[in-house]
Design a protein around this nucleic acid. Structure first.
Lengths: 152, 152
DNA sequence: CCACTCTTGTTGAACGCTCAACCAAATGGC
DNA sequence: GCCATTTGGTTGAGCGTTCAACAAGAGTGG
């Protein structure tokens, strides 16, 4: 027999539903804006960001997947599309013959540079403008605790 | 000429990335667990929940979409699948001949009852167990402010 | 009563994600 | 050196979501 379910009390219930509604609405909004204004989903934007920050704008596929919080399969599919758009290209890894390295092209960097201001503005408008400085700090601590707990 | 972008300062940057990583990891985990243990994505679970709480376990499609935080199109596709699974059925609305009413079947209620304990346990383990009571309260306020700001 | 507009809900195509299966190369024992 | 296992990455099928287009009924002003 399984242990009894630890149900949510009314406060927790309220918190969970609010969190669900808010984060879904936030991500949906940002995703839609990015798709509309820059022609890419948020997941692709993040891949380009991570690449742009890497030394030489290049990363092993696996490292890129980790950095972007993506599964390997997802990144592989995404890379196929990003390569077709001319925003990245794939090269063989010199030190591991199984490996592939994703490289951000100049066109990819330009696409990112074009998309960034609008997206950042969206993040500010939809997220930070709604919160007090104290809440921003709380949200950071909460998120870090959560991420740490989840990846432990 | 557009106004200059209000870029994120380092603290905001850190908060935003932590939030992104945490909420993505949380939702991915819960979604995967629900899919594995109950054979449904989280979006479908939420549809069933909302229906189960409605009077007579029935709701107009539009109201159900709003309650579940879904677009009408998404709900329509989902309803097609849920109906094929025998978990809901659609009836004509008596007061509006355009309208459809989604009704939770007994099988749907049973599927929900079977899925709920495991899912709630997951929410507790992955979310609430990682946070202090004060943080839960902060998260609720933050989420409510956010949701309010977004739908305003 | 008619025309215009709005609302409700559905549909199909394109797209992105997941999952499982898979290949190739690296690694670790023995 | 060889075989088994692990790691890196890709692939295809199936599913869910989005978007735009659509059909049909409800509401509204004249």
């Amino acid at each position: 027999m399984r242990a009894m379910t630890r149900w949510l009390d009314p406060d927790e219930q309220r918190t969970w539903r609010a969190y669900l509604a808010a984060s879904r609405a936030l991500m949906d909004t940002l995703d839609r804006e990015l798709q509309r204004d820059a022609g890419m989903p948020h997941a692709y934007y993040e891949i380009l960001v991570r690449l742009s920050e890497a030394p030489d704008r290049r990363l092993r596929m696996g490292d890129l997947a980790d950095a972007a919080g993506s599964s390997r399969s997802r990144l592989s599919h995404a890379a196929t599309r990003l390569e077709a758009s001319g925003w990245i290209r794939r090269e063989d890894c010199p030190t591991d013959r199984r490996g592939q390295v994703a490289v951000l092209t100049d066109a990819g960097f330009a696409a990112l540079a074009a998309a960034a201001p609008g997206h950042v503005e969206g993040v500010r408008r939809h997220l930070f403008d709604a919160l007090s400085p104290a809440q921003v700090d709380q949200l950071r601590r909460i998120s870090e605790a959560l991420a740490d707990h989840l990846t432990r």
